Computed example of a mutant assay.
Amino acid sequence: MNTREAIIALNMLPKIGPVRVRRMLDQFGSAEKILTADTNSLMRVDGIGSETAEIIRDWENRIDLSQELAEVERRGLSIVTQEDAEYPEALKLSYDPPLVLYVWGSILEIDRHALAIVGSRKTSHYGTQTARQFAFQLASSGMTIVSGLARGIDSHAHEGAIAAKNGRTIAVIGSGLGQIYPPENMALAERIADGRGAVVSEFPLNTSPSKKTFPMRNRIVAAWSQAVVVVECPEWSGARITANLAGEMGKTIYAVPGQIDRPTSAGCNALIREGATLVTGGHDILDDISTLPLREASHPQETPTVSLPSLTGAEQKIFAALENESLLMDDILTATGLPLPEINATLLKLEIMGLVKQMGGSRFARK
């Protein structure tokens, strides 16, 4: 057994965790020696009691390492350890960095320029559009968007990033990669992994989501990102936990203000009262973070700005039709001659780009 396999084995064992493993590594010097240590030696490590020592001593009967590695290979996944170049430097500097990361897709050097966008699972139209627009604008400017693949704001943040030209996004999930959660986001996960970023988990392949795994996921989102943007969330939620964790790590917290009578805005408004930076668009964040190079900038030292791609085809036709007035959907159909499904898809993209807004009913106008 080599060091890599020993670390993966330790990560698969229950009731161990990265903090205890780090203490044992300080004591024994290598992961292989931990797995072969006797009970008394293990119990001399701070935090290792008889139960934990017994789990480690009996590791070969508790997990099937060979099967796990074979399944990872069969699925076309990879496992990244802290010794690998792909392992995010920001995670290494956190208090309890994951021992390993199971990766579906690819983690690139450019993903070190990362911002988290998080929020409520139950979201309003306002929250949905805001998350998409922020993610699109920030991803267009070279930032990698990190979120949790959850329903609501997380999903829309990933969608907005994917809509940007060359946009990248990292989805950190609270389950194993063999148990994508929520299951209805499998198609979104596939799109992310197919050249637009990665779906990442610290948990063994077949780990089911639980109340314990989601907070663990949140700490990775907070640690990976240079700052956290909270779009919409109630007073107490996973998004607030992520923001609080990021604050404890010294990261900047941005919050989008919401209506004072909406429960889903209470968390953001509270964060602003507590000192989070109020933001109303991606440009506010880019102005604040002025040291990040553009992903495709010709002059890397320039301050990043939001650069929207040129409109082509259906985008150009619809945008031109809305030049002088707002139009109903029927009017857009008549003016452009485009099929309804294409108009719906294009209008959504133009909304994400921040160029078009939906008014009452099915009426649209330039923003």
Rank of each mutant, 00 (worst) to 15 (best):
S290V: 04
E86W: 09
R4E: 06
L355A: 05
V118S: 07
T3V: 07
D261W: 10
A276H: 05
Q316G: 00
E32V: 03
I55L: 09
D261I: 13
K15P: 01
N206H: 09
L77G: 00
W104L: 09
A345I: 11
H158D: 03
H299I: 15
A131W: 03
I56E: 00
R273P: 04
A345F: 08
M12R: 08
I117T: 05
E68N: 08
L65F: 06
V103P: 07
L278N: 10
L347P: 11
I162E: 05
S106K: 14
E315R: 12
D84Q: 04
G337W: 04
T81A: 02
L292N: 02
S265P: 15
I241P: 04
Q67R: 14
P300W: 12
I170L: 12
D287G: 11
R132S: 14
F364Q: 07
S30T: 11
A6W: 08
M186I: 14
Q226F: 03
S208A: 15
S201F: 09
D84P: 06
T252G: 07
I170R: 15
A131M: 05
D287A: 10
S50Q: 06
P98N: 10
R273M: 14
S290P: 04
L177Q: 12
R22Y: 04
I34K: 02
D96Q: 03
I173H: 02
A161I: 06
V80K: 01
T242S: 05
L65D: 03
S237Q: 02
A187I: 07
A314M: 02
G160T: 02
L65G: 10
L188E: 12
G281P: 00
I318G: 07
P234K: 05
G178K: 15
A276S: 15
R74E: 15
R217L: 01
L311Q: 03
E235C: 05
G247F: 10
S124M: 11
A321P: 06
I8K: 01
I272V: 12
T312I: 10
G267V: 08
I220K: 06
I173A: 09
A335M: 11
G178P: 15
A70V: 13
G247A: 06
E325T: 14
R191S: 01
L10M: 06
S326R: 10
F136P: 11
T305K: 11
K367E: 06
A314W: 01
T169Q: 04
M12H: 07
L355D: 10
E109R: 01
D330A: 14
I241T: 11
M249S: 11
R20E: 09
L188N: 09
L311P: 00
G160D: 03
I16G: 00
